[in-house]
Protein backbone atom coordinates (compact mmCIF):
# COMPACT_ATOMS: atom_id res chain seq x y z
CA UNK A 1 0.00 0.00 0.00
CA UNK A 2 1.58 3.31 -1.00
CA UNK A 3 1.51 6.39 1.14
CA UNK A 4 3.75 9.18 2.25
CA UNK A 5 6.32 8.50 4.92
CA UNK A 6 6.31 10.85 7.87
CA UNK A 7 9.70 11.76 9.19
CA UNK A 8 9.28 15.21 10.73
CA UNK A 9 6.48 17.19 12.29
CA UNK A 10 6.15 19.24 9.11
CA UNK A 11 5.14 16.12 7.21
CA UNK A 12 2.08 16.04 9.42
CA UNK A 13 0.72 19.28 8.04
CA UNK A 14 -0.61 17.62 4.90
CA UNK A 15 -4.09 16.39 4.14
CA UNK A 16 -6.45 16.34 7.06
CA UNK A 17 -9.34 13.88 7.00
CA UNK A 18 -11.34 15.35 9.88
CA UNK A 19 -13.14 18.59 9.11
CA UNK A 20 -14.02 21.18 11.78
CA UNK A 21 -17.50 21.87 13.12
CA UNK A 22 -17.79 18.76 15.28
CA UNK A 23 -20.01 18.77 18.35
CA UNK A 24 -17.20 17.57 20.65
CA UNK A 25 -16.14 19.76 23.57
CA UNK A 26 -13.66 22.53 22.96
CA UNK A 27 -10.20 21.24 23.81
CA UNK A 28 -11.12 17.54 23.57
CA UNK A 29 -8.00 15.37 23.61
CA UNK A 30 -9.66 12.46 21.85
CA UNK A 31 -10.13 14.33 18.62
CA UNK A 32 -6.48 15.41 18.52
CA UNK A 33 -5.56 11.73 18.71
CA UNK A 34 -8.15 10.73 16.12
CA UNK A 35 -7.01 13.43 13.70
CA UNK A 36 -3.37 12.30 13.94
CA UNK A 37 -4.33 8.66 13.67
CA UNK A 38 -6.29 9.37 10.53
CA UNK A 39 -3.43 11.32 9.00
CA UNK A 40 -1.09 8.41 9.58
CA UNK A 41 -3.51 5.84 8.16
CA UNK A 42 -4.41 7.91 5.13
CA UNK A 43 -7.85 8.39 3.66
CA UNK A 44 -8.83 4.83 2.74
CA UNK A 45 -10.33 3.94 6.07
CA UNK A 46 -13.62 2.73 7.43
CA UNK A 47 -14.21 3.50 11.08
CA UNK A 48 -16.33 1.25 13.24
CA UNK A 49 -17.52 2.94 16.39
CA UNK A 50 -19.25 1.96 19.60
CA UNK A 51 -21.15 4.45 21.75
CA UNK A 52 -19.04 7.19 23.26
CA UNK A 53 -18.21 10.85 22.80
CA UNK A 54 -16.70 10.21 19.38
CA UNK A 55 -20.05 8.82 18.26
CA UNK A 56 -21.31 12.39 18.28
CA UNK A 57 -18.85 13.32 15.56
CA UNK A 58 -21.48 11.99 13.27
CA UNK A 59 -24.97 13.11 13.97
CA UNK A 60 -27.16 12.68 10.96
CA UNK A 61 -26.97 14.44 8.50
CA UNK A 62 -23.49 15.69 9.36
CA UNK A 63 -20.06 14.09 9.40
CA UNK A 64 -16.64 15.70 9.80
CA UNK A 65 -14.91 12.67 8.29
CA UNK A 66 -13.85 12.35 4.70
CA UNK A 67 -13.78 8.58 5.22
CA UNK A 68 -16.50 6.04 5.96
CA UNK A 69 -18.03 5.30 9.30
CA UNK A 70 -20.28 2.67 10.77
CA UNK A 71 -21.88 2.80 14.15
CA UNK A 72 -22.51 -0.37 16.15
CA UNK A 73 -23.89 -1.29 19.54
CA UNK A 74 -21.61 -0.63 22.48
CA UNK A 75 -20.38 -4.17 22.98
CA UNK A 76 -19.81 -5.09 19.38
CA UNK A 77 -17.56 -2.75 17.42
CA UNK A 78 -14.89 -5.43 16.79
CA UNK A 79 -17.64 -7.78 15.59
CA UNK A 80 -18.78 -5.03 13.22
CA UNK A 81 -15.20 -4.70 12.04
CA UNK A 82 -15.11 -8.43 11.33
CA UNK A 83 -18.20 -8.13 9.14
CA UNK A 84 -16.74 -5.27 7.14
CA UNK A 85 -13.35 -6.98 6.77
CA UNK A 86 -14.98 -10.18 5.56
CA UNK A 87 -17.19 -8.31 3.12
CA UNK A 88 -14.19 -6.44 1.69
CA UNK A 89 -12.19 -9.66 1.39
CA UNK A 90 -15.01 -11.42 -0.41
CA UNK A 91 -15.60 -8.49 -2.77
CA UNK A 92 -11.90 -8.41 -3.64
CA UNK A 93 -11.69 -12.15 -4.06
CA UNK A 94 -14.66 -12.16 -6.42
CA UNK A 95 -13.14 -9.19 -8.23
CA UNK A 96 -16.18 -7.08 -7.59
CA UNK A 97 -13.85 -4.32 -6.36
CA UNK A 98 -10.19 -3.83 -7.29
CA UNK A 99 -7.53 -4.39 -4.62
CA UNK A 100 -6.70 -0.67 -4.64
CA UNK A 101 -10.17 0.03 -3.30
CA UNK A 102 -9.53 -1.95 -0.16
CA UNK A 103 -10.10 -0.07 3.10
CA UNK A 104 -8.39 -0.26 6.46
CA UNK A 105 -10.90 -1.26 9.08
CA UNK A 106 -10.44 0.74 12.27
CA UNK A 107 -12.42 0.38 15.46
CA UNK A 108 -12.58 3.55 17.54
CA UNK A 109 -14.15 3.50 21.00
CA UNK A 110 -13.70 5.11 24.36
CA UNK A 111 -12.29 3.38 27.39
CA UNK A 112 -15.76 2.39 28.56
CA UNK A 113 -16.46 0.31 25.48
CA UNK A 114 -12.86 -0.93 25.26
CA UNK A 115 -12.24 -2.09 28.79
CA UNK A 116 -15.73 -2.81 30.05
CA UNK A 117 -18.58 -3.43 27.71
CA UNK A 118 -16.75 -4.37 24.51
CA UNK A 119 -13.88 -6.31 26.03
CA UNK A 120 -15.10 -9.76 25.09
CA UNK A 121 -15.79 -8.93 21.45
CA UNK A 122 -12.30 -7.41 21.21
CA UNK A 123 -10.84 -10.52 22.78
CA UNK A 124 -12.73 -12.63 20.24
CA UNK A 125 -11.53 -10.52 17.33
CA UNK A 126 -7.90 -10.66 18.47
CA UNK A 127 -8.19 -14.37 19.02
CA UNK A 128 -9.52 -14.86 15.48
CA UNK A 129 -6.62 -12.81 14.16
CA UNK A 130 -8.90 -10.24 12.54
CA UNK A 131 -6.92 -7.82 10.39
CA UNK A 132 -7.96 -4.51 11.91
CA UNK A 133 -6.86 -1.50 13.91
CA UNK A 134 -8.29 -0.47 17.26
CA UNK A 135 -7.98 3.04 18.66
CA UNK A 136 -9.18 3.43 22.23
CA UNK A 137 -9.27 7.05 23.37
CA UNK A 138 -8.94 6.79 27.11
CA UNK A 139 -10.42 9.70 29.04
CA UNK A 140 -10.62 7.44 32.07
CA UNK A 141 -14.41 7.51 32.56
CA UNK A 142 -17.73 7.51 30.71
CA UNK A 143 -17.31 11.06 29.43
CA UNK A 144 -20.27 11.15 27.09
CA UNK A 145 -22.87 10.58 29.77
CA UNK A 146 -21.44 12.92 32.40
CA UNK A 147 -18.22 11.30 33.59
CA UNK A 148 -19.25 8.26 35.57
CA UNK A 149 -16.36 5.96 36.52
CA UNK A 150 -15.34 3.22 34.12
CA UNK A 151 -12.90 0.34 34.50
CA UNK A 152 -10.24 2.73 33.23
CA UNK A 153 -10.74 5.32 35.98
CA UNK A 154 -7.57 5.72 38.04
CA UNK A 155 -7.35 5.48 41.81
CA UNK A 156 -8.20 8.77 43.51
CA UNK A 157 -10.19 10.34 40.67
CA UNK A 158 -13.43 12.18 41.27
CA UNK A 159 -16.15 11.06 38.90
CA UNK A 160 -19.90 11.61 38.94
CA UNK A 161 -20.29 8.20 40.57
CA UNK A 162 -17.24 8.36 42.83
CA UNK A 163 -17.36 11.81 44.42
CA UNK A 164 -15.14 12.34 47.43
CA UNK A 165 -17.36 12.03 50.50
CA UNK A 166 -16.63 12.08 54.23
CA UNK A 167 -16.76 8.28 54.14
CA UNK A 168 -14.62 7.84 51.02
CA UNK A 169 -12.56 11.02 50.90
CA UNK A 170 -10.15 9.83 48.22
CA UNK A 171 -12.75 9.54 45.45
CA UNK A 172 -12.51 6.47 43.22
CA UNK A 173 -11.14 3.54 45.19
CA UNK A 174 -10.70 1.02 42.41
CA UNK A 175 -7.67 0.52 40.22
CA UNK A 176 -7.34 1.31 36.55
CA UNK A 177 -7.75 -1.84 34.51
CA UNK A 178 -4.58 -2.51 32.55
CA UNK A 179 -6.04 -2.76 29.06
CA UNK A 180 -2.60 -2.80 27.43
CA UNK A 181 -1.70 -5.95 29.37
CA UNK A 182 -5.06 -7.57 28.72
CA UNK A 183 -4.70 -7.00 25.00
CA UNK A 184 -1.04 -8.02 25.07
CA UNK A 185 -1.87 -11.29 26.78
CA UNK A 186 -3.48 -12.35 23.47
CA UNK A 187 -0.09 -11.83 21.79
CA UNK A 188 -1.44 -9.92 18.79
CA UNK A 189 1.07 -8.55 16.26
CA UNK A 190 0.93 -5.02 17.65
CA UNK A 191 -0.27 -3.21 20.76
CA UNK A 192 0.82 0.28 21.76
CA UNK A 193 0.04 3.19 24.01
CA UNK A 194 0.17 6.66 22.47
CA UNK A 195 -0.46 10.24 23.47
CA UNK A 196 -1.75 13.19 21.43
CA UNK A 197 1.08 15.25 22.91
CA UNK A 198 3.66 13.02 21.19
CA UNK A 199 2.62 13.01 17.54
CA UNK A 200 5.80 11.57 16.05
CA UNK A 201 5.76 8.69 18.49
CA UNK A 202 2.16 7.95 17.51
CA UNK A 203 2.86 8.17 13.79
CA UNK A 204 5.89 5.89 13.97
CA UNK A 205 3.92 3.31 15.86
CA UNK A 206 1.16 3.32 13.28
CA UNK A 207 3.69 3.03 10.49
CA UNK A 208 5.27 0.10 12.25
CA UNK A 209 1.92 -1.56 12.90
CA UNK A 210 0.95 -1.29 9.24
CA UNK A 211 3.50 -3.91 8.34
CA UNK A 212 1.62 -6.55 10.25
CA UNK A 213 -1.52 -8.39 9.24
CA UNK A 214 -3.83 -9.03 12.14
CA UNK A 215 -4.98 -7.02 15.15
CA UNK A 216 -3.14 -3.74 15.73
CA UNK A 217 -4.32 -2.04 18.87
CA UNK A 218 -3.68 1.42 20.31
CA UNK A 219 -4.66 3.16 23.51
CA UNK A 220 -4.37 6.93 23.57
CA UNK A 221 -4.56 9.02 26.69
CA UNK A 222 -7.25 11.64 26.05
CA UNK A 223 -7.45 14.52 28.49
CA UNK A 224 -11.06 15.64 28.76
CA UNK A 225 -11.66 19.23 29.94
CA UNK A 226 -15.13 18.82 31.48
CA UNK A 227 -14.46 15.43 33.07
CA UNK A 228 -10.95 16.09 34.31
CA UNK A 229 -12.05 19.60 35.30
CA UNK A 230 -9.20 21.32 33.52
CA UNK A 231 -8.85 24.41 31.35
CA UNK A 232 -9.46 23.60 27.69
CA UNK A 233 -6.02 24.97 26.85
CA UNK A 234 -4.30 22.45 29.13
CA UNK A 235 -5.26 19.28 27.25
CA UNK A 236 -1.93 18.81 25.49
CA UNK A 237 0.02 20.01 28.49
CA UNK A 238 -1.62 17.32 30.63
CA UNK A 239 -0.98 14.60 28.08
CA UNK A 240 2.70 15.64 28.13
CA UNK A 241 2.77 15.66 31.91
CA UNK A 242 1.21 12.21 31.99
CA UNK A 243 4.12 10.93 29.92
CA UNK A 244 6.77 12.83 31.83
CA UNK A 245 5.52 11.83 35.27
CA UNK A 246 5.48 8.23 34.09
CA UNK A 247 1.79 7.67 34.80
CA UNK A 248 1.23 7.13 31.05
CA UNK A 249 4.12 5.04 29.70
CA UNK A 250 4.66 5.15 25.94
CA UNK A 251 5.28 1.58 24.87
CA UNK A 252 4.55 -1.07 22.29
CA UNK A 253 4.38 -4.83 22.23
CA UNK A 254 5.11 -6.85 19.11
CA UNK A 255 3.67 -10.35 19.44
CA UNK A 256 3.64 -9.78 23.19
CA UNK A 257 7.23 -8.51 23.50
CA UNK A 258 7.16 -5.16 25.33
CA UNK A 259 9.40 -2.26 24.44
CA UNK A 260 9.17 1.28 25.79
CA UNK A 261 9.50 3.92 23.10
CA UNK A 262 10.22 6.71 25.55
CA UNK A 263 11.85 6.30 28.94
CA UNK A 264 11.84 9.43 31.09
CA UNK A 265 15.27 9.45 32.79
CA UNK A 266 13.94 11.37 35.73
CA UNK A 267 10.24 11.08 36.46
CA UNK A 268 8.52 14.34 37.26
CA UNK A 269 6.60 14.07 40.56
CA UNK A 270 3.08 12.86 39.78
CA UNK A 271 1.80 15.69 41.93
CA UNK A 272 2.51 18.07 39.03
CA UNK A 273 0.06 16.10 36.93
CA UNK A 274 -2.57 15.64 39.63
CA UNK A 275 -2.74 19.09 41.12
CA UNK A 276 -3.87 20.93 38.00
CA UNK A 277 -6.87 18.65 37.56
CA UNK A 278 -10.14 19.35 39.34
CA UNK A 279 -10.86 15.62 39.49
CA UNK A 280 -7.93 15.26 41.93
CA UNK A 281 -8.45 18.54 43.77
CA UNK A 282 -9.73 16.77 46.89
CA UNK A 283 -6.25 15.26 47.31
CA UNK A 284 -4.88 18.76 47.90
CA UNK A 285 -7.74 20.77 49.33
CA UNK A 286 -9.03 21.36 52.00
CA UNK A 287 -6.56 18.86 53.48
CA UNK A 288 -3.60 17.46 51.64
CA UNK A 289 -3.79 13.69 51.28
CA UNK A 290 -0.09 12.87 51.26
CA UNK A 291 -0.92 9.20 51.79
CA UNK A 292 -2.97 8.97 48.59
CA UNK A 293 -0.51 11.00 46.52
CA UNK A 294 2.38 8.88 47.81
CA UNK A 295 0.52 5.70 46.94
CA UNK A 296 0.04 6.85 43.36
CA UNK A 297 3.70 7.92 43.17
CA UNK A 298 4.87 4.61 44.58
CA UNK A 299 3.00 2.57 42.01
CA UNK A 300 4.53 4.60 39.20
CA UNK A 301 8.01 4.16 40.60
CA UNK A 302 7.57 0.45 41.04
CA UNK A 303 6.47 0.19 37.43
CA UNK A 304 9.48 2.10 36.13
CA UNK A 305 12.02 0.35 38.31
CA UNK A 306 11.31 -2.85 36.38
CA UNK A 307 11.43 -1.01 33.07
CA UNK A 308 14.74 0.64 33.92
CA UNK A 309 16.26 -2.71 34.81
CA UNK A 310 15.18 -4.31 31.59
CA UNK A 311 15.14 -1.63 28.97
CA UNK A 312 17.11 1.49 29.82
CA UNK A 313 19.11 2.59 26.81
CA UNK A 314 16.96 0.59 24.40
CA UNK A 315 14.18 3.11 23.80
CA UNK A 316 13.67 4.99 20.51
CA UNK A 317 15.44 8.28 20.30
CA UNK A 318 14.44 11.44 18.50
CA UNK A 319 10.94 11.51 19.87
CA UNK A 320 9.05 14.74 19.43
Amino acid sequence: MSRTWFSTLKDLLGEDYVEPGTPLCAGCGAIIALRLFHKALGGRVVWVNAAGCITLLIVYPFTPLKSSWMYTAMASAPAGAQGIRDALDILIEKERIPVEEDLKVVVVTGDGAASDIGLQSTSGAIHRGLDFYYLCYDNEAFGNTGFQYSAATPYGSRTATSPPTPLIPEGYRGRKKDLFEIWRAHKPPYVATVSPSHPMDMIRKIEKAEKYKGPKLFISISPCPPGWIIETMDTVKLAKLAVETGIWPLKEAVYGEVHHTYIPRRLKPVEEYLKIQGRFKHLFYPVRRDDVIAKIQREIEEYWRIVYDKELGKEDSGLT
Binding site: D16, P20, G21, A26, R35, L36, P199, E231, M233, V236
Partner: peptide
Protein backbone atom coordinates in the same frame (compact mmCIF):
# COMPACT_ATOMS: atom_id res chain seq x y z
CA UNK B 1 -0.97 19.59 14.87
CA UNK B 2 -2.43 20.25 18.30
CA UNK B 3 -5.52 22.26 17.30
CA UNK B 4 -8.37 19.86 18.11
CA UNK B 5 -10.64 21.42 15.52
CA UNK B 6 -8.15 21.41 12.67
CA UNK B 7 -8.97 25.04 11.92
CA UNK B 8 -5.38 26.26 11.57
CA UNK B 9 -3.83 25.86 8.13
CA UNK B 10 -0.36 26.73 6.92
CA UNK B 11 -0.27 29.36 4.21
CA UNK B 12 2.76 30.91 2.56
CA UNK B 13 2.70 33.76 5.08
CA UNK B 14 2.25 31.46 8.10
CA UNK B 15 -0.57 29.74 9.98
CA UNK B 16 -4.09 31.03 9.47
CA UNK B 17 -7.00 30.48 11.85
CA UNK B 18 -10.48 29.86 10.49
CA UNK B 19 -12.53 31.77 13.07
CA UNK B 20 -15.79 30.47 11.66
CA UNK B 21 -15.10 27.17 13.40
CA UNK B 22 -12.39 27.84 16.03
CA UNK B 23 -13.91 26.94 19.41
CA UNK B 24 -11.49 29.07 21.39
CA UNK B 25 -9.94 26.27 23.42
CA UNK B 26 -6.62 28.19 23.36
Amino acid sequence: IYCPEGVITMTSSGPEIDYENCKGCL
